[in-house]
């Protein structure tokens, strides 16, 4: 007996086909899950503010906000190179050999200095390798640090306030008439 108008999909499926469908379904849902977690995870690739524990509880509010120390005193390479750079321990000791030496954090700092043991800061702003960015050029155009890094001078603990994605860069480049050619950043 032969079914009339029988359609391939109505045929009982083989085990292999069923297994393959399952795998595909898992992968598809997994991909969606990855995308969701990628943006929702409280980590450096998320939208949310990210503030990992740093080896020294350094306060930008105190130094850059209240004391009005210029950003480039510590991040001295911003105007000279692509990286802004993190100050060496000896730079901290320029002041802290004499100032607030009884504080617990400064004691920790002094210990690192005395033992010649470098500090391991957690990097909170990072761009993927496919992006080329130069601090030097932006500083030369007198763009304020806060334009990209948010109100850093108000932060008691280090935190990433701004998400640096492509639209963030492009918006500003368009507003200011900076080049938006692909090779400007992806070279």
């Amino acid at each position: 007996m032969r079914k009339i108008g029988g359609h391939a999909s109505l045929k009982p499926r083989s085990d292999i086909a069923r297994f393959a469908t399952k795998i595909l379904a898992v992968l598809a849902v997994g991909f969606i899950g990855f995308v969701v977690f990628f943006y929702a995870a409280p980590f450096q690739y998320s939208f949310s503010v990210w503030a990992p524990d740093q080896p020294i509880a350094y306060s930008h509010k105190l130094h850059a906000g209240d004391l009005e120390i210029n950003c480039q005193y510590c991040h001295a390479y911003a105007r000279r190179s692509e990286m802004a750079g993190v100050p060496s321990v000896s730079k901290c000791m320029n002041c802290h050999s004499n100032l607030t030496i009884d504080s617990e954090q400064i004691a920790k700092l002094t210990e690192h200095y005395d033992q010649d043991k470098p500090l391991e800061w957690i990097r909170i702003y990072d761009l993927p390798d496919l992006v080329w960015f130069s601090h030097k050029r932006h500083i030369a155009k007198e763009i304020a640090c806060q334009k990209c890094h948010g109100p850093v001078q108000t932060l008691v603990t280090n935190a990433r306030l701004v998400k640096h994605n492509m639209s963030f860069c492009l918006n500003c480049h368009q507003e200011n008439g900076a080049p938006t050619d692909c090779l400007t950043c992806h070279m």
């Binding site: 898992v26 899950g33 690192h112 010649d116 500090l119 800061w121």
Partner: peptide, 18 residues
């Protein structure tokens, strides 16, 4: 798989000179 994917990134460190 989503969690595994998101956790693949490890925090990078910056280690300046003493």
């Amino acid at each position: 798989s989503g969690v595994a994917g998101a956790c693949g990134q490890v925090a990078k460190k910056i280690i300046p000179y003493v």
